[in-house]
Design a protein around this nucleic acid. Structure first.
Lengths: 202, 202, 202, 202
DNA sequence: TATGAATGAGGGTTCATTCAT
DNA sequence: CATGAATGAACCCTCATTCAT
């Protein structure tokens, strides 16, 4: 039925856009991967670019919504940042292709589509910015350049999508916790009894 | 003379590949940006893909050579890593387009070309790996997962190429020093008298 | 009921074929204008081309039938031609889109369909030819080249479909009468007491 | 050399657009008729539509220029109109395909291109309008509806492009003269010693 | 050195039509 | 009666590349 097919197209696009890039993926590649003719493809998408924009927006909206849910009502900025980092790492490890597409293909979007995507990304990043700012304000974080550090950490976490494999030795939850520790260290939060030290058995 | 023209082509390619991606850049774009006809372009390059591979290899070779020079004969792993991070950040801030191309377009390359590029990248990254391993071995670094941390830090530093602007408020040297501090904190090196604390006036 | 829908499809086709041409009109356009799905369209027409041929034949048959009725039993060739011109002008003014389609899209038709359309057109034009020939034979028309004049007048009258608007200042009956006068002048019939002179107040 | 090829493409387009319509002519048809590949076609034209617009503009400009030259400095409106009709008929008989394209395919053009074509057509038609108006003003023409008559005559003359064949019995010059006589009769100009009567031997 | 001309292959998209439901 | 789904063929146009001059 229609929904399944639409989903098949979506997945084909995610796979190929992530592997070969948007411009490196032809409509015929998408059709083959979706097991559809090129003409049929157009029953399930507006255009190649709209398909891309949809993928990006869905990915970012999911991330934004779950991050907002995770963080709402958490007063401690340290705890908030820890949650954000963990969620971010998990999301990027579980959906590496979607997130890589978001990271790499923004430049192909039409200005209008780009605006909508960037708006979502900015909304998400502001959750990080708030946590960092609050932590600095209350003295929990001691970093000379909070803005730079925030973006550095974001890039670090984005990187997970580029290398993580579920076949690695480190369970995902531990990986996420490790990233959170690295982030808090980077921000100069005194790690009292963090998972990091625990995992070292101290 | 020929060399100048060749350089013009190279720079056009760097500009366009970074801005629109390899597949998003046509030879007509390259010709226009180089102020050459498309046919003339082929006096100065083998093919579009060879041009890309050349750019990538040159970028990586330069990075590898200068990193090797910087690090050779430095016994202290902390100091070595600090130098590596600073160099990396500076290189990515100064040549953001080349380094972004290296990061984003590897999937485009033919297996043969990809191998040569990946070999250079691996050689470079092994300098980081050695420093981290030495630091862990001598107890200077206290991180539960050195391998993961190393790759996390590399991704963090690569990110500089995606956002750094010389018009930012932070001088590049300070930025590089800040990144080095973040990296050492992340690795759990006790930062004694680091630039970070100095810049906070302590 | 089905008949209404069929008529809706017909009218959509007339509108669009006249405005954008047969090849410029897609079945999706037809479906949209008919408020039907493209698939449903095929319940009311054989194919796009058959729809076109039907429109043409209906238009020509109506013209032929009413002209035949108008002219039968009128012995005076001058009067006959006057009636033919008036009818022709009125028909083209009232159904400009159908007649434009007949004029412009014959080349689209398959040979078989074209033959049936051309046969109707020829039958109609022979009414004109007979009137002109009779008029020349009895001395009522004094034109050096009756055949050429006939076709020239036909083209002139066809043109009405290309510019007439009911919002123009001249009532349609007067317009038709004027065309009849022009035609008779062109044929060299001494206009005695024609509408033309009357309208000039003489 | 380039000029020849460009001209070959032009002629192929004129032939095919006239025979099958703009939308009925594919780029592959043009290529085949031009003995070029579809890709090579684009060395000699901007796009299919630009090719069409160029053909239309050239046709109209030629007509406008020669009509202007013909008519300038001719004070007698009767003589002016005779010259205009003759020129128009000759032009449409000699370039029937170009003029049919102008007449039939204007609706295809983009608004911008259409404006430029319509402007030329209007400039040309104003030569006719001036002659008619002058003739009416000085009493040389006695028609109840000069505007309508003018457009009727134009359509009549345009029709030449739809049926004239050089293999017909009437020499082109005589045909043109005949049309001029028909036109002047239609306008109610007393034909004194016109070609029409001469050809009848009176 | 430089480029106009040329092209086979492929780009994304729409075509008119059919058919199972 | 009506339509979503499906498609092979074709749409216009651009691709990276070669070669004669």
């Amino acid at each position: 039925m229609a929904l399944d097919t639409r989903e098949r197209v979506r997945r084909a696009a995610v796979k190929l856009f992530a592997a070969k890039g948007f411009h490196g993926t032809g409509i015929r590649d998408l059709a083959q991967e979706s097991k559809l003719s090129t003409a049929s493809l157009y029953h399930y998408m507006g255009s190649k670019e709209e398909l891309l924009a949809d993928i990006m927006r869905d990915c970012l909206r999911t991330l934004l919504d779950s991050a907002t849910a995770e963080v709402t009502g958490v007063p401690d900025p340290v705890e908030r940042l820890r949650k954000l980092v963990k969620l971010h790492v998990r999301a990027h490890a579980r959906k590496p292709r979607e997130t890589r597409i978001v990271d790499h293909e923004i430049h192909v979007l039409t200005p209008a589509a780009r605006r909508s995507v960037v708006a979502l990304r900015d909304a998400y990043e502001s959750l990080w910015a708030d946590a960092v700012a609050d932590g600095v304000a209350c003295g929990a974080f001691t970093t000379a350049h909070p803005g730079v550090t925030r973006i550095a950490l974001l890039e670090m976490c984005n990187g997970v999508a580029r290398w993580y494999s579920p076949r690695g030795s480190l369970p995902l939850d531990e990986l996420a916790a490790h990233y959170a520790d690295v982030a808090l260290r980077a921000l100069g939060a005194c790690p009292q009894g963090s998972a990091e030290r625990q995992s070292k058995g101290e």
